[in-house]
C-alpha cells in the first residue's frame, strides 16, 4: 500500500541489565554459549508497560508532544490477558482522547502498529498516532529460546509529512500464512516451537516474500537503499536473509543488535530502526522487514529527512554501552522463573 505518513519522533529502550549466554549455558549445558553474546533483561520492576513508557517518552519528546489520537501497543508479554496496555499507557502519558489498542503477532506486533497508524494518518482519520512494540520475552528454562529471548521497547510517533519530519513512510506490504513455527496457548507461561522449522518455512519464506512484494509494488531494488533492517531472532538470520535478497554487508550491518541484546520480539525491528535513524542522513532510503511467527512479515520503504536533536539527546548505540551484567540466579528471580 502507498502511504503518506511520517515518523515525527522515535524512541528505543533497552533495560540496563544483561545476562551472558555463557552464563545460561553454564547452568543448563555445563558450558558453551548461545548464538548471541548477551541478551537484555528487564529488572523485576519493569514490564512492557514501563518500557513502552520509556520509549514513548523519548519519541514524544522528539516529536514535541503532538496531540496523539491512537496508541497501539504490540506485544506478546502483556501484563494482563484482559485489560488493555494501551489505555494504561494513554493515562500515564496524559493522552485520554485516543484509541488505546493492544496487538499481538509474535515478533511483528510492533510493525503492525506502525503500519496501522501509518494507514490511519495517510487516510486522514487521525493526525497523530503512537506505535509501540515492546516485549519481555521469555524462553522456557533450558530451552534454546532462552539464549535469545530479551527485553526492550521501541516507539514511533507518526503523522503526515510536514517538512520537519524525521522520515517518511512511503510504502508498506504484509504477507501472512498459517505456519505453526511458534505459539503459546492462553494459560501457558512459555511458548512452544518447532525448532528448525522456524527457519526456512517460517522466517525465510515470509520475509523474502514480503520484501519481494515490496519490490514489485514499488519497482525498487536492493541497491536503491542505504540501509536494510530485518527481524533479528539471532545474529545470523538477518544477514542470511539480506544476502539472499541481494543486500550487502554495508546495508545490513548498521541495524544489527542481536549479539548485544538478544531478540526483543515486538520491539526488535523498531529498536533497529531507531539505531539506523540515529545515523542516517537526509535522503537515505531504508528497507525494513519484520517477521512474526505464526507467521507473517511486514515490509516498509522509509525515506529519511532530517532530525533536530535536543541538546540532551543521547544516541541509542551510546546508551547501549552502559549496561550491568547479572547472573542466572538474579535473572531467574527477576523474571519469575523461581516457583513461589
Amino acid at each position: 500500500m502507498n502511504l503518506n505518513a511520517a515518523i515525527l519522533g522515535y524512541g528505543a529502550y533497552v533495560p540496563i541489565y544483561r545476562i551472558r549466554t555463557e552464563e545460561i549455558a553454564r547452568v543448563w549445558h555445563g558450558g558453551g554459549a548461545g548464538p548471541n553474546r548477551m541478551k537484555a533483561i528487564a529488572s523485576y520492576d519493569e514490564d512492557i508497560l514501563t518500557m513502552s513508557y520509556e520509549s514513548a517518552s523519548q519519541a514524544l519528546s522528539m516529536a514535541n508532544y503532538p496531540k496523539i489520537q491512537a496508541i497501539l501497543v504490540g506485544s506478546e508479554s502483556k501484563p494482563y490477558a484482559v485489560k488493555p496496555t494501551g489505555s494504561i499507557l494513554s493515562d500515564i502519558l496524559g493522552y485520554n482522547s485516543t484509541l488505546g489498542v493492544d496487538l499481538e503477532f509474535a515478533c511483528k506486533a510492533g510493525t503492525e502498529a506502525m503500519q496501522l497508524i501509518s494507514g490511519m494518518v495517510s487516510a486522514g482519520t487521525i493526525d497523530y498516532g503512537l506505535a509501540i512494540g515492546a516485549d519481555t520475552a521469555q524462553g522456557r528454562p533450558a530451552d534454546e529460546l532462552e539464549f535469545t529471548a530479551g527485553s526492550g521497547a521501541g516507539a514511533i510517533v507518526l503523522g503526515r509529512p510536514n517538512g520537519r519530519e524525521v522520515a517518511k513512510i512511503k510504502h508498506s506490504v504484509s504477507y501472512v500464512t498459517d505456519t505453526p513455527d511458534f505459539w503459546r496457548r492462553p494459560h501457558d507461561q512459555y511458548p512452544m516451537h518447532l525448532g528448525r522449522f522456524t527457519g526456512e518455512p517460517a522466517y525465510f519464506t515470509h520475509t523474502t516474500t514480503s520484501v519481494k512484494m515490496l519490490f514489485s509494488e514499488t519497482g525498487m531494488k536492493p541497491s536503491d537503499f542505504k540501509y536494510a533492517i530485518f527481524h533479528q531472532p539471532n545474529p545470523r538470520f538477518p544477514v542470511e536473509v539480506g544476502k539472499r535478497l541481494g543486500f550487502t554487508d554495508e546495508q545490513l550491518r548498521p541495524a544489527l543488535l542481536n549479539d548485544d541484546i538478544g531478540n526483543t520480539y515486538s520491539a526488535n525491528t523498531i529498536i533497529a530502526l531507531a539505531k539506523v535513524l540515529d545515523m542516517a542522513d537526509t535522503g537515505d532510503m531504508i528497507m525494513l522487514a519484520s517477521f512474526g511467527s505464526g507467521a507473517g512479515s511486514d515490509a516498509f520503504v522509509i525515506e529519511v529527512n532530517s532530525r533536530d536533536d535536543d541538546d540532551g539527546y543521547v544516541p541509542f548505540s551510546e546508551r547501549l554501552r552502559n549496561y550491568r551484567e547479572v547472573d542466572y540466579a538474579t535473572y531467574a528471580r527477576w523474571r519469575g522463573k523461581i516457583l513461589k
Binding site: 520492576d45 519493569e46 514490564d47 508497560l49 514501563t50 513508557y53 520509556e54 501484563p79 494482563y80 494504561i88
Partner: peptide, 16 residues
C-alpha cells in the same frame, strides 16, 4: 521514570 511498584498476587492488579 515509571516502574512497577507492586503486583497484588498472581491474579491481582499491577500497580505502577
Amino acid at each position: 521514570t515509571v516502574r512497577k511498584w507492586t503486583e497484588d498476587g498472581k491474579g491481582g492488579l499491577v500497580y505502577y
